[in-house]
Amino acid sequence: MATELNNPRFVADVERRTGETQIRLSLNLQGSGQANLDFPVPFLRHMLHLFAVHGQFDLTIEATGDVDVDDHHLVEDIGLCMGKALTIALGNKAGIRRYGERHTPMDETLARCVLDLSGRPAFVLQADFTNERIGTFPTELVAEFFKSLANEGRMALHLAVLYGDNNHHMVEGLFKALGAALRQAVEPSGRGVPSSKGVLE
């Protein structure tokens, strides 16, 4: 907890090793949109590249896992590691905006992300996906990733696909909106912790 009580450093390194996954992750919230992603889930690699570019974050992930079973454990654990890195990087959150919001069009689709770095995990996803898979990626894992990120990132994360037809476009819109909204939320704004309670935890 000592690290999390410090002022934001905006960078964090996280490592997670279990019987199911092995993950090393680095996050720089004041980066330039550079993504170096090496793990065997191509669709999630694509989505996290978009997240990094649209959030202007530097994100490095080296990971392996039991994808011979399915992608679930690796997708979930990468979300957990990203959330943990965000929590460490923001410390006590002094001087950041705290809230972020973005509507993002992706061709015929319109996606929305609204988030609060409140310290209280909450997650809502409103999206009517019509396919069980996008390529080889199980569509149900979209929610699992975002839920893991929200829980370990200790944020209230509200995502919605307002309308759209193409499932790939829907998910792409959500990841782009997340990156842009999070960028807004972590931008410097003032000096103190943005809460009437004096803490965000």
Score class of each variant (00 low, 15 high):
F129V: 04
L174M: 09
R120A: 12
I134W: 05
E144L: 00
E140Y: 11
V171T: 14
G119N: 14
E132C: 00
V124L: 14
L157E: 04
F129M: 07
E144N: 07
T130D: 13
L157G: 10
T139F: 08
F175A: 02
T139N: 03
V142E: 06
L141T: 01
H169G: 07
F137A: 04
A143M: 04
H158P: 06
R154G: 05
A127Q: 12
R133D: 06
Q126D: 15
S118G: 06
N166I: 08
A122T: 04
T139H: 02
G135F: 10
L149I: 06
R154H: 09
A143E: 15
F175S: 03
M155N: 09
G119M: 10
K176N: 05
S118P: 11
L157W: 01
A122W: 09
A127L: 03
S118Y: 03
L174D: 07
H169I: 05
F145E: 04
S118E: 08
M155S: 02
N131L: 15
F175R: 06
N167G: 06
G119I: 11
N167F: 05
A160N: 02
P138C: 13
G153S: 10
N131H: 15
P121W: 04
N131T: 14
S118F: 06
H158G: 00
S118H: 10
A143T: 10
V171Q: 07
P121E: 06
N131S: 14
L149W: 09
M170R: 11
Q126F: 00
G135Q: 01
T139S: 11
P138K: 12
G173F: 08
V124P: 00
F145I: 08
F129G: 09
E144P: 02
A160Q: 11
E140G: 09
V142G: 03
S148F: 00
S148E: 01
E152T: 12
H168L: 09
E172Q: 05
D128C: 08
G164V: 03
F146A: 08
V124T: 15
F129N: 08
L162G: 05
T136Y: 02
T136V: 12
R154A: 13
A143S: 15
F146K: 03
F129E: 12
N151Y: 09
E152P: 01
M155W: 06
S148D: 03
K147E: 13
G173P: 10
R120L: 11
L125Q: 13
L125R: 03
V161G: 12
L141C: 01
P138R: 12
A156W: 04
H158N: 15
F123A: 12
L162E: 15
E140V: 09
